[in-house]
């Protein structure tokens, strides 16, 4: 009877010990890289045919692995019905590795916006991965067009 009781506590003790020991080996990295988009700025207006200079500061506690820059329509389908007759929506995507897995990196990428692009709101964003697969994303909204009427 006493044996069972003490065995029970021994087992509980064992569980506590097993759960507290070898904590984390110090290598499990769950810290996401950080992103600071410098240009363009939110709600910036961009003329078709001009160059959009994308610039962002990336940081990570261990090392950055790769990034992907995207530009796509932010119109969210509201005008999709008449879409076929209109100009092409602008799409851009570019991905690259961060040189030598550096923990700090500034991305600079000039993006040519075509002349005949469909006017409207666009998302400009970047997705960043660190060497351990931690991911972060940031998006901002810009307007591509000559006249901004909203």
């Amino acid at each position: 009877m006493k044996k069972i009781a003490s065995l029970s506590f021994a087992l509980i003790g064992l569980l506590i010990i097993s759960s507290c020991s070898d904590d984390d080996n110090m290598v499990a990295d769950t810290t996401k890289p950080t992103i600071q988009i410098i240009t363009p700025t939110d709600d910036q207006e961009i003329e078709p045919g001009s160059v959009l200079n994308f610039k962002a500061d990336l940081k990570d506690n261990i090392g950055l692995a790769s990034y992907k820059i995207e530009v796509h329509s932010a119109e969210d389908g509201h005008q999709h019905k008449a879409k076929q007759s209109e100009a092409e929506e602008f799409h851009y995507d570019f991905s690259a590795e961060v040189p030598s897995k550096s923990p700090e990196f500034t991305v600079e990428k000039p993006i040519n916006v075509p002349e005949d692009v469909k006017e409207g709101h666009y998302h400009v964003g970047i997705t960043v991965l660190d060497v351990n697969g931690n991911q972060n994303q940031q998006f901002i909204e810009v307007f591509i067009g000559d006249e901004h009427e909203h």
Binding site: L11, I12, L15, I16, S18, A65, S66, K68, E70, H72, H91, D93, S95, T127, L129, V131, G133, N134, Q135, Q137
Partner: peptide, 29 residues
Amino acid sequence: NASAYLYYFTNYIFLKPTGVFSILPHGGQ
């Protein structure tokens, strides 16, 4: 009432980040 428990899996199914970008829009890795 007090309980201690332990679950051990020999092959727990989980989603592993691959570190490779998806080619789909908004995809991330």
